[in-house]
Write a protein that binds this DNA or RNA. Structure first.
Lengths: 339, 339
DNA sequence: TTGAAAGCGCTAACAT
DNA sequence: ATGTTAGCGCTTTCAA
């Protein structure tokens, strides 16, 4: 691969001139530009981004650390983050942690401020303390899609009202007349899922209902998890009329389990999820869910990171996203005998 | 962020010594190692990977260029590629092209040999000629999961027998007694999907059947595409007893369309896909499909790329993966009235 | 065992 | 408008 100086020699100019042509600072005489461009074409020269990054003190690369690229939420996030990054002239490096916070932390250690200009941490189970210990000045780390508004730690974060999402889901089921409901809660991603359950419970409380512990299942945040939890719920509480899942993937599993048993959705049992991933629209019956606005959250998160890179702030930056909204589809209906 | 020389100064040694400690070449006296490590800890030093890459002429980063991270095939591929890369001490940079070959090519132009030590191109619609024009010596580009065995272009590639996959699918339907079948073919990813259809057709030919053009639908490679194609097929050919889809995503859409019309799977119509993505296992009825062995293909592809980086070859390298295998699940059954 | 110094390929003052 | 030169932070001979 040709280097700048080879191009310069061929064009009969110095590296500074070639560099100026490349970044078209309008400082070069058209005739020279011409010569240089011919030399570039002749050599097939392409700038070494590593060298440029070192010289500029900026790699134009950002990393996105996430727990499981196979969970369809994340690709949806990645797609918009990558697009926004590309439009702002950044490369996006996706770091999958296989749900292991230690791997996520290792990524941060290696990359933050040394390979990437900034890092977006998405549910990777990395503690604020660990991030603080890194103290990467001038290389921001943003927590995307968090529940906790913690002003004490000075880490910028994008806040989603998961509690409200759970509450909306609960309210919707209540409005349909449901009283005996099961809840399936994903474990693994810390507070996020608990907040959703709390929100759900708070909706019930407001209607003077309590959710018995026996009606809650904690499972892995997968289709299989939702399936198993539903089986368990159904065996012990065959009288439930609705199931609340803290995300759509588990709701999909729940629907499956129901289908396997010949239980009709929503006639016999209603199912509601949270997030509104593509699958929620695609499945049959289409899933009623509480949309978190993936596209918005991703856009806001990546833009915040890039803004902080280009324009460092000293105060903690907390950016809220709009509240979740209920999306009624075909998996919920009034309870049997009601209305 | 502290630099090597700051650490060196604090430890009272030179940068060369610190560098040796960091990469523990056993050339440093234990006592000095001790001092240096204390200085490292005290400063919170982490090596600047850009600078290291420039000095070493190796970034330890590889890129994976793919068309659509939202198509569930790709995350499954990414997950294993990332894991293998990580174990071999490489970072994986995922480049989503939004199905635009020009974006893929732009990525290659920018990254290949200048930021990444090598690039894995996965169905991104980039021509061999374009790749050749790049002539990135000492920085391999590998085409992953290709159908064409083209020894003429010297680009290494991993070859999947898509033709065979289509044939297996066709044979399976024939074995079940189906004769009137529709075919749904994804467009966009070039030869890959055509080869699958060709394989399907060849299976029919071997049984003295032809597939009329009117029974083939070309659509976008999505759930919605499969859905629409199925609607169209059903309207014009309500007598078909089976649908072959060139991938699982469209097969999912087909099943949906059938469900929407109250057509039972597989009692009324059988559906078969290709690939065996996670969704094929998760959906109900579970999808009969021809497994391409995503994990194997990904492992072989990324390993080939890394091998070529570490050990350049001059001959074209063509690596085949094991043949596809039929996975019978619940979406196919003997044709009504047969047996 | 450690230090000195050159250089990876580029950018960016500063001169001319 | 172009050239000169000094780094960016690291690795890596070669000396000491």
């Amino acid at each position: 691969m040709a280097t700048l100086s080879e191009v310069a020699r061929l064009a009969g100019v110095t590296t500074a001139t070639v560099s100026n042509v490349l970044r078209n600072t309008q400082k070069v005489k058209p005739a020279t530009v011409q010569k240089v461009q011919e030399a570039i074409a002749a050599t097939g020269y392409r700038p070494n981004l590593m060298a440029r990054a070192l010289a500029e003190g900026k790699s134009s690369m950002v990393a996105l650390v996430l727990p499981d690229i196979n969970n369809p939420f994340y690709p949806e996030f990645v797609r918009v983050a990558e697009r926004v990054a590309r439009h702002r002239n950044y490369f996006l490096m996706v770091c999958n942690t296989d749900e292991r916070p230690d791997i996520g932390l290792a990524y941060l250690h290696q990359i933050a401020g040394t390979l990437a200009d900034g890092v977006l941490v998405l549910h990777a189970g990395i503690s604020a303390d660990d991030i603080h210990a890194l103290k990467t000045r001038r290389s921001p780390i943003v927590l995307a899609s968090e529940e906790q508004v913690d002003l004490a730690n000075h880490i910028p974060h994008v806040v989603v009202n998961f509690h409200r999402a759970g509450q909306i889901a609960g309210q919707h089921l209540l409005d349909l007349g449901h009283r005996r409901m099961g809840a399936i809660v994903g474990c693994g991603l810390e507070g996020m899922q608990i907040a959703r359950l709390d929100g759900f419970v708070s909706a019930l409380s407001a209607a003077d209902l309590t959710l018995h512990e026996a009606l809650v299942r904690n499972v892995r945040d997968t289709v299989a998890g939702g399936h198993e939890a539903t089986d368990s719920l159904l065996e012990q509480h065959p009288d439930i009329t609705a199931i609340f899942c803290t995300n759509d993937l588990m709701a999909y599993g729940a629907c499956q389990a129901l289908a396997d048993r010949g239980i009709r959705i929503p006639q016999d049992i209603s199912v509601i999820g949270i997030t509104d991933i593509q699958l929620a629209r695609d499945m049959r019956p289409a899933l009623t869910t509480v949309a978190l606005g993936i596209e918005q959250v991703a856009t806001i998160s990546i833009n915040l990171l890039l803004d902080l890179i280009e324009n460092p702030q000293h105060e903690p930056t907390i950016v809220p996203v709009p509240d979740p909204v209920l999306v009624v589809r075909a998996s919920t209906a009034p309870v049997r005998g009601s209305i």
